[in-house]
Write a protein that binds this DNA or RNA. Structure first.
Lengths: 138, 138
DNA sequence: CTGCCTGCAAATGCTTTGCATCTCG
DNA sequence: CGAGATGCAAAGCATTTGCAGGCAG
């Protein structure tokens, strides 16, 4: 993982700094979607203090490098998550408990590609968010 | 349309004010997604000056009443649109020209409902946003 | 009348930016 | 050494809130 980051950075002749490594590691070691604050707190937990501006800048960079994804669950701030493989997930957000469940449905891809093809639209990223009540909160 | 708004408000014993009417009208007469600023400007165009706080409060109310929908196209602010019928639209957002194209695919509903059913998730609203390059900007 | 609304301005809270300093390569 | 990164604090912006005065019912 760190190797991939290192590679992407080298490719663009950008320095592989301690901060970038630490931020990517925090993100990578969590399965949840983290906010900039979450990342900052996690860093403090492990004794690393990194300025918030740097956290924001690094998160944006990771997204730009295609190594992380950015999500907006209507909380007033954004969350980030490392992309593991190529797969992208869609989300169900419970408006009661705030829980986020990821899902993936192959058939969805097929149906969507039909629409895109018809419109001559070249997809880059997509976000599918379904708000509602989860199983436990029903 | 105004009748519906009037009815929803009465039902909750909330006053049907000039401002609420004007804001709903602006939204209703536009086919596009409007930001709070857009609404404020449109109101000024027709000689009505309404405080921005009221615009925000009314838009939130319309969403709560189920008469309007809120969208976030990653521009740093939100946009609103009146719900015409029951139908909800999904969107393709061109990252080059910023254009938003609405679409609707019946098969999507079917595929999604399978996922939701499996998870025991009760949907309330959903947002499908596909970012990419539109036909004209290719 | 009474409660909810409106407007203004001030406050919020996330995110971005300017700038001096430091680090990677 | 030099380009780019970092940190801090200040700035930016969309959105929210407090409060005095107004309007709908």
């Amino acid at each position: 993982m760190m190797e991939i980051l290192r590679g992407e950075l080298r490719e663009r002749e950008l320095p592989f700094t301690q901060q970038r490594e630490a931020i990517a590691r925090v993100l990578f070691e969590s399965t949840r979607h983290l906010s900039a604050d979450d990342v900052e707190a996690a860093l403090l937990d492990r004794g690393q203090q990194i300025g918030k501006a740097t956290v924001y800048r690094s998160l944006a960079l990771l997204v730009e490098l295609g190594l992380a994804t950015e999500h907006d669950f209507d909380e007033g701030f954004r969350r980030y998550q490392m992309k593991v493989g190529a797969a992208q997930y869609d989300h169900m957000i419970c408006t009661v408990c705030g829980g986020v469940t990821q899902f993936r449905q192959e058939e969805l891809e097929a149906v969507l590609s039909v629409v895109l093809q018809e419109a001559g639209f070249e997809p880059l990223t997509r976000q599918i968010k379904i708000f509602g009540t989860c199983h436990d909160c029903t």
